[in-house]
């Protein structure tokens, strides 16, 4: 019986990771990036740009592995180990996706507004196609629900203005991956606050607003 499960990683990955940049990732690097995206998504107050390429790439690895596992005898200890790894990856990806869905449900109106703005400006979108569809359906159902239960008590304009928004000033812990200079401290007013520099590997608690761009471009990650 064939117990060596061999995967041709580089072929798989090259095709699925961002075609413009031609980044080549080993599966281990892809998993590390996925973990980072998971934690970032967990702690960032707003929804972050999606990582569909990464998710699809890892899901591909998982289903490839599961196909291979079917041919293994279920008493083989290797199968247990492989199954364990697959389960860990599945947990990682589903927790990541669920975190995003949770944010979409909580902040559906502001998220849709911002996404529409991005569509109009033609810039990179934050939601995947399915997430956008989910958000629209959810908003519609919510609208419908409120119309039904609150007509007698609450005028429509009233609750439309009272939607929940993410608190982008909320405090987060971060670790820096690069040297970053001149982060403006968000001090609660619109005037320019103090500046702070980050060394590679340094850790800090700071208002998310000060570092939102750095989280999105990957110079820092949340912890």
């Amino acid at each position: 019986m064939n117990i060596d499960i061999d995967i041709n990683f580089s072929d798989n990955l090259e095709a699925s990771v961002d075609e413009d940049d031609e980044i080549q990732l080993t599966p281990a690097e892809a998993i590390a990036l996925m973990e980072e995206a998971w934690i970032n998504e967990k702690f960032a107050p707003e929804i972050l740009p999606h990582k569909l390429e990464l998710v699809e790439c890892l899901l591909g690895q998982i289903s490839y592995m599961e196909d291979n596992l079917r041919s293994l005898n279920s008493t083989d200890f290797k199968k247990i180990i492989h199954q364990l790894e697959v389960d860990r990856l599945r947990f990682l990806i589903s927790s990541y996706l669920r975190t995003r869905l949770e944010k979409i449900e909580t902040y559906v109106m502001p998220i849709l507004d911002e996404e529409n703005e991005r569509i109009q400006q033609g810039v990179e979108l934050y939601l995947t196609k399915q997430e956008l569809k989910f958000a629209k359906d959810f908003a519609e159902d919510l609208q419908h629900h409120f119309d039904n239960i609150t007509t007698t008590r609450l005028p429509r304009e009233e609750w439309n203005q009272e939607c929940v928004k993410p608190n982008i000033h909320s405090f987060v812990f971060l670790k820096s991956k690069e040297e970053v200079e001149g982060i403006v401290i968000d001090d609660g007013n619109d005037e320019d606050g103090d500046l702070v520099d980050l060394n590679r590997g340094s850790q800090m608690i700071i208002s998310y607003k000060s570092v939102a761009n750095l989280v999105k471009n990957g110079d820092v990650h949340l912890i």
């Binding site: 060596d4 061999d6 281990a28």
Partner: peptide, 8 residues
């Protein structure tokens, strides 16, 4: 023998 995990 070697176990070929996804992570290495």
């Amino acid at each position: 023998g070697v176990i070929h995990l996804i992570s290495g």
